[in-house]
Design a binder for these strands. Sequence first.
DNA 1: ACCTGAACACCGTTCAAGT
DNA 2: ACCTGAACACCGTTCAAGT
Lengths: 199, 199
Amino acid sequence: MGRRSDHSRDELLSLALDAAEKIVAEEGINALTARRVSKEIGYSVGTIYNLFENLDDLSLHVKARTLDALYAHIKGVPKGEDVESDFMALNKAYFDFLKANPNTWGSILDREGADGQPLPDWYLEKVALPFSVVQAALMPLFGAGEEEQAGFAARTLWCGVHGIAVLGMENSLEAVGSRDAENMAEYLILNFLGGLRRV
Amino acid sequence: MGRRSDHSRDELLSLALDAAEKIVAEEGINALTARRVSKEIGYSVGTIYNLFENLDDLSLHVKARTLDALYAHIKGVPKGEDVESDFMALNKAYFDFLKANPNTWGSILDREGADGQPLPDWYLEKVALPFSVVQAALMPLFGAGEEEQAGFAARTLWCGVHGIAVLGMENSLEAVGSRDAENMAEYLILNFLGGLRRV
DNA sequence: ACCTGAACACCGTTCAAGT
DNA sequence: ACCTGAACACCGTTCAAGT
């Protein structure tokens, strides 16, 4: 036994997260186990617990990577004058991302505190970033100084889109009578924007 | 060992589902295990597999009970002339139900086919019932013969509300900057209805 | 015909023991 | 200081053996 020093702590973290990300991408979140990751990187189980608090912590870091990738993917979406078209572009970028990462997505925003623990701050900040993109796209419908209201609208709208996306990417939208989640999301967005414009 | 005939098959099903429902209500879906249920009803693990295909099947039956209860809870909500107030009442009934059954709710509409299996028909029918209530409440905004379009709108809107509810009932709406899921749902509904009226 | 429980192949997590 | 792997207390699922 004993130290190996084959890898620095940072390298080990990278190795473990790469392996975990791959497992989730290929086989879904349920295939992610500490033992499996340890085997994949050629270290013992104990080492995983040296790197992460527990399995929840490990999976939180995998999700954080996905949030980073999502933010990178949507923040560059070009914007024009027309709020409606901007949102359609945003919606498309969002669904493109989900389709490219169906397993990795899934339960990103879902329950974390299986143990009732609140989510750590560094994670909450990552969750907030994609919402800030939506908020920015919504600002043309709000006056200067109404950022807070726009933020509320952004969270409302995108939680709704997320609900549709989650039910759509998993198979249960069939349960609900449609397989076209992306169209439903567009319909939700357009009517929501219509309602905002109506005032 | 051998048969005991203490209970008929139907009684056994009832006992098992009652026990399972209680476990989920008190400790969440993750506490539901075949061994635990068997212990609770005083039979061996094997008997659980005599009653249900597997743990997924058991949990699907628990969720089905929850859907029955939800439908019973919202189908009697009184309706007036005003679509907006009808929907506020519906929204309140929905959230009252979720608050009363936080653990039991959770992942009702979520991923079933962990194994990739499609959901069974008897379950899909139970999922559809609550949506039919929403569709009915939406009909004043649609012409006669537009049932299908109203159905699409109902699924869109309520998937959105569900998304907000799921993120709100679990703790992750804090991740999103608000703890008032019910208000967000109302805001989503009112603007969506506003958009529909705008045509 | 039903019910049991040992058996198999897994888990998450800990921690004494090694280098 | 790091890494190991046996140990503990669990899992889901199966199926020969009992009544």
